[in-house]
């Protein structure tokens, strides 16, 4: 999949434009996946031929705070007519937070034939492109997934503790108010149960939203992103970086930017994030 973007990134093939998606709406080798925060959004209208994968219902285990098992991921993919060779294109609301989150989870299961639609739902709508209510039905596939690999791009609390000891870079992508502990939740969002406000010791605050153009949700240019992360915040593409937010959704957006747009070699997303760290007994915080 080679895409002509307005901007060139290190792995430009992981990002497609709305034009590209429009031309591939009927491509049997492509499955378009919408992933949103609002459950009513996809059923209200969506891209023709797209399916919905919901982060709460489809991607999270319902009994353990963890992602679905290999078996359930295989069932999810098969039910949506996705086979191992299908190119999956993600888009959604909230400037593609949830699309990037779903994309990241797909990478835990090794589905690398995937990309994100730049600008997400916001850009598609602003361009007045076709949206429909009909939910497509695809023939069931027999998708086979490897065991979920939690080691390459996912960080757990022990990894974060080790990271702190080794003085390695942590990126807190939440708002400044959450980072400083003034708020226990992101602006306009409720408190989802963190007992303390602040950040993980040593973390730099680089809010995720700095990576996008708010008017259409597209990613900023390579040069703008390079300035933000490498020049202004002293990160290096060879650094071992862990990103976190509240539950791992905003930080998966930053993980995507660092890994694919800037070509960082070793970025992990700490999905336990502040809802784990801010409640954990015996761990330090900074304000």
């Amino acid at each position: 999949m080679q895409e002509v973007l307005d901007h060139v990134y290190v792995h430009s093939d992981m990002l497609v434009t709305t034009d590209w998606v429009n031309e591939h709406l009927n491509d049997p080798g492509v499955r378009i996946v919408e992933s949103n925060e609002d459950l009513l959004l996809y059923p209200s209208r969506h891209l023709p031929g797209s399916v919905q994968i919901d982060w709460t219902v489809d991607l999270n285990d319902q009994m353990i705070r963890d992602y679905v098992s290999r078996e359930n991921f295989e069932k999810l993919m098969s039910a949506n007519g996705i086979d191992n060779d299908t190119t999956v294109i993600f888009y959604g609301d909230k400037n593609n937070w949830w699309a990037c989150y779903a994309f990241w989870i797909f990478q835990l299961f090794g589905h690398t034939k995937a990309a994100v639609m730049d600008g997400g739902r916001l850009k598609w709508e602003k361009e007045n492109r076709q949206m429909i209510k009909d939910v497509p039905k695809y023939s069931r596939t027999n998708y086979k997934a490897p065991m979920r690999n939690d080691h390459g791009i996912r960080a757990f609390r022990d990894d974060v503790m080790e990271h702190i000891k080794n003085n390695l870079p942590l990126v807190d992508v939440r708002s400044m108010e959450e980072y400083t502990g003034k708020r226990l939740h992101m602006p306009e969002y409720p408190n989802e149960g963190a007992l303390r406000g602040g950040h993980i010791p040593g973390a730099a605050n680089i809010p995720w939203a700095k990576a996008i153009n708010p008017e259409d949700g597209t990613f900023k240019t390579f040069d703008e992103l390079k300035k933000l992360y490498e020049i202004d915040n002293n990160l290096n593409p060879d650094d071992d970086v862990i990103a976190y937010c509240r539950i791992g959704e905003r930080s998966s957006h930053t993980w995507f930017v660092l890994t694919y747009l800037l070509g960082f070699n070793h970025v992990r997303n700490y999905d336990g994030s502040w809802t784990e760290w801010g409640n954990m007994v015996g761990v330090p915080i900074e304000k």
Binding site: L39, T56, Y189, P190, E192, G193
Partner: peptide, 16 residues
Amino acid sequence: IFGQSLSMGKNLGLTG
């Protein structure tokens, strides 16, 4: 109204 599959954040936001 919305059922139990609503995320905690979404539920609290709507309850607002």
